[in-house]
Amino acid sequence: MFGIDKMANCEELPTRRLLMMSTTSTSFQLKAEHRKIEGGSSSKRLRKQGRLPAVVYGQGIESTSLSVDAREFINYVRYKGLTDVIHLAVDGKKSIPVMIKDVQRQDANWLHVDLIKIDKNKPIKVRVPLEYIGTAPGTKSGGILDIQETSVEVEGLPDHIPASIAIDVSSLDISEKLLVKDVPWPEHVSLLTQADIILASVVLPSTLEANDEASSQAVAQETEATS
């Protein structure tokens, strides 16, 4: 993405309303089974059986290979997102609180998920996706909404981490930009992303093309210098 903050006549926006999805925990319990590591073929076989290979690790537990019901897990993530607390029960034993650390996907196929054990009484750092809502007036005047950040990093107790944060761009006109510091962020979490980072802006097509070309040239020059 190009640096719109370097363009002339760009004015900072006043504080804008930010909408946040509910952070209430649903105490979802995910049932898992131990699995043996037998090479890549075993993972393929599990996926054909409707199971999703997984691993859980974290403080106080050994790294353990698991499998979970693929449909149940994927439907839950689509509904609640990637930042919710999950209660993981392995082989019918007492559940432990975990969060999704990483998901491996190839196109529309879910391949593997990493789960990490957490302490619900200790803050964690996580990236939360941003959801841009509304129609920027500048786009009705020939401008293009240029989204530069799709997530921000926050720190807070697991139950306070939102599934996503929705940002209203309905007041964004041509040559205006929205910075991290321009929006009020959710209570009970600390924002770790730098305040002067640009989230989104509305620019003219010619400006976008010129800056994209400049960015491509800079990358090419850097590649040549390091080769």
Rank of each mutant, 00 (worst) to 15 (best):
F2P: 00
G3W: 13
I4D: 05
D5R: 13
C10M: 13
R17Q: 14
M20P: 07
M21A: 15
S22H: 11
T26M: 07
S27H: 08
L30Q: 05
K36S: 14
I37T: 11
R45P: 09
R45A: 15
K48I: 01
G50Y: 06
L52N: 05
P53A: 08
V56S: 07
G58K: 01
S63D: 08
L66H: 11
L66M: 09
S67C: 15
R71I: 15
E72F: 04
E72T: 12
K80D: 04
G81N: 13
H87G: 01
L88S: 00
A89S: 15
D91H: 00
G92E: 01
K94C: 00
P97H: 11
D102E: 15
V103G: 06
Q106W: 09
A108F: 13
L111C: 02
I116A: 13
K117Q: 15
R127K: 15
R127D: 15
V128Y: 04
P129F: 05
P129G: 03
Y132I: 05
Y132T: 03
G134S: 05
G134Q: 07
A136L: 02
S141N: 13
G142Q: 10
G143D: 04
I144V: 15
I144D: 10
V154K: 08
G156H: 11
D159W: 15
D168C: 09
V169L: 07
S170E: 08
S171V: 01
I174C: 03
S175R: 14
E176V: 04
E176T: 06
L178Q: 00
V183C: 12
V183R: 02
H188L: 11
H188N: 15
V189K: 06
T193K: 01
Q194H: 08
D196Q: 09
S201R: 08
V202Y: 02
V202G: 06
V202S: 07
V203C: 10
S206L: 05
T207V: 12
L208Q: 14
N211I: 04
D212T: 12
A214C: 07
S216A: 12
T226D: 14
T226L: 13
S227A: 08
S227M: 01
